[in-house]
Write a protein that binds this DNA or RNA. Structure first.
Lengths: 113, 113
DNA sequence: CAGACATATTCTATTAGGGGTATATATCGC
DNA sequence: GCGATATATACCCCTAATAGAATATGTCTG
């Protein structure tokens, strides 16, 4: 998960992923479209590949990279517990305040931990 | 989006987000739980806040941070076009191969762009 | 097997990001 | 207003990540 996120956090790599969403591409094609130098693209592809986000298959002298969208399922799964939250109107601030007051009081009253 | 991803890419920040999923917390509480130093936590919170992932509200001398799960909706939306893909059995490699052959032939035959 | 071509790797330089310490700012209780 | 507490910011150091240029590897064509 961590690895996937850091891989996607780099702008050029995110672009590569988006390119590969449409269809698999050879390294050279990515180079053309992103106006990056070939070694950089190869390096970024390496990172993406290590994170499981893409995979290559050799065809003649070139390597066709394609997206492994399954890897993104992990992100999807991570999001899951948050889905519940993101429409909630109220926040639990009241709880928190009550909590704070309690702790504060305890401190004042000086009780053993 | 880019900003959100880079914010989440840092392990400690991801942990903070996960902490705040349960309930809002004051800076000091995050410090305790993550065993980080206070300035680091403040800095990470700054990044998360700039990315729209958290928001603070002052309560007395402390600042209660809470998650803005709506920000994660963006990630969810970004994933959307990929959902279609990630269960597909076959890949479009055949298309790609056909494409390559065509281009190759064109090159050989030497036609104007 | 000699190029030509496509891609990967290596090495180096530069930069960005995170950690540490000290300090500034703001609010509380008295 | 003063000391204490909570948090934010500034500054410095260091590592890690990125870019750039040169080169290595591998495969095709003739």
């Amino acid at each position: 998960m961590q690895e996937i996120l850091s891989a996607l956090a780099e702008p050029n790599r995110l672009q590569i992923v988006e390119l590969l969403r449409r269809k698999p591409l050879a390294v050279g094609e990515i180079v053309e479209r992103l106006r990056l130098r070939q070694p950089q693209v190869s390096k970024h592809l390496r990172v993406l590949s290590d994170a499981g986000l893409v995979e290559a298959r050799p065809v003649g002298q070139q390597r066709i990279y394609r997206l492994r969208a399954q890897a993104l399922k992990e992100v999807d799964a991570w999001l899951d517990p948050y889905r519940r939250t993101w429409d909630e109107r109220f926040d639990q601030l009241d709880d928190v305040l009550r909590d704070l007051k309690r702790k504060h009081k305890e401190k004042k009253d000086g009780h053993g931990k």
